[in-house]
């Protein structure tokens, strides 16, 4: 009995967006009298931080401070249509819609700023801190809030913008499968290290180290959160989870978290990552998307590491201790048959 160590790797791509397109997202932006910008959406934050990321995109595109942006979302009475939060689409699709809306709102703001500052549009710039400056004339700046108030009370104008993003629907050729199934592709390469206990069949994941290429990161901490969380989920898929442990037998379904096993904090390995940024041509600021893909590369990397450690080619998930022990037994039997055959051959010669 031994504890065997091994290393395995995998490399994957992942497409962004509902694969056949035709999945619009809309955004509306308007300024309040105090210079807040309300971004109205109906996209849902699943806990991944969509509100935060969209707030960053809106602030950047409007040229205002994060704290001046209010995200109002997931309400069908106030938010314009959105297809939904899935398919690694939200940051890409909603972000693009928000950028378009911000552009329109920004132009409306600049129209008023031209009059208020008595300056040509080409001389106006946002400092990102809540002010509009006149290039070369530092004393002639105005607060965005004051311009927004003037727009409404002095000029009777709205500061507002509309945005929509939709990749047109792509039909599939039913004979050849010709189609346009993604907006952009992100990539990952994962190296996993495992230790296999040949007595208990247990696999301990020692480390999951990955490189990700996800286009521009809007919020690196949230990207890393996806990568760490996804590594956990991939490890869980590889070694623990199923609702039908004896599939295709439909019975013995777990009913709660005491029967549906997943790794806990104690089982979490070292997780390390580097993130490369090759901006996409069609995402907001070059975003590709990182939502779904992070669970994918760890699974085959772990399974390949088990092979490297034990010589067992596993072709099913999850890789339970039972599967490992049966595999090791079969391997041992095959080896003893082979060695008996060798002995026979040697004796016979």
């Amino acid at each position: 009995m031994a504890k065997l160590r091994g290393t395995g790797m995998s490399a994957v791509n992942y497409p962004t967006g509902m694969n056949l397109g035709g999945d619009p997202s809309q955004a509306l932006i308007h300024a309040t009298t105090s210079g807040s910008f309300v971004v109205s959406l109906s996209a849902t934050d699943l806990g991944q931080g969509l509100r935060t990321v969209i707030g960053q995109i809106a602030a950047e595109a409007l040229g205002v401070r994060m704290e001046d942006v209010v995200i109002d979302t997931a309400d069908t009475d106030t938010g314009p249509h959105d297809m939904g939060t899935f398919a690694s689409r939200a940051t890409h699709r909603v972000g693009n819609a928000v950028m378009a809306a911000a552009q329109e709102a920004r132009e409306a703001l600049l129209d008023v700023a031209e009059d208020e500052l008595e300056a040509a549009r080409s001389d106006l710039e946002f400092d990102g801190q809540g002010n509009i400056l006149v290039r070369g004339a530092p004393d002639r700046s105005l607060k965005v809030a004051d311009i927004a108030a003037a727009a409404q009370f002095k000029y009777g104008k709205t500061i507002a913008g509309r945005g929509v993003y939709m990749k047109p629907r792509s039909p599939v050729d039913p004979e050849t499968g010709a189609m346009d199934p993604d907006s952009t592709e992100a990539h990952a390469c994962t190296v996993a290290e495992v230790e296999v206990d040949t007595e208990t069949g247990e696999v301990t994941v020692l480390s999951i180290r990955s490189a990700y290429e996800v286009g521009r990161q809007i919020n690196p901490a949230l990207v890393k959160g996806q990568i760490v969380g996804g590594a956990w989920m991939g490890m869980s898929h590889a070694l623990y989870e199923t609702t039908a442990p004896y599939y295709p037998d439909p019975d013995h379904n777990p009913k709660d978290f005491s029967e549906y096993l997943m790794p806990g904090a104690y089982e979490m390995p070292e997780i390390d990552c580097v993130v490369l940024e090759y901006p996409s041509s069609n995402g907001p600021y070059g975003v590709k998307g990182v939502g779904e893909m992070t669970a994918n590369a760890p699974i085959p990397a772990i399974v390949n590491a088990i092979y490297h450690a034990t010589g067992l080619r596993i072709d099913e998930l999850p890789v339970t201790p039972e599967l490992i022990l049966r595999g090791l037994d079969a391997k041992e039997r095959a080896a003893s048959v082979a060695s008996a055959a060798d002995t026979t051959a040697t004796t016979g010669s």
Binding site: G177, E185, C189
Partner: peptide, 24 residues
Amino acid sequence: PHRKVVEDATLIETMQAAAALVGQ
């Protein structure tokens, strides 16, 4: 195979970065 021309392949660069990360 589905007839789309690849536009943003970075698999090679990603594998190079992973190799550097793990000392391969």
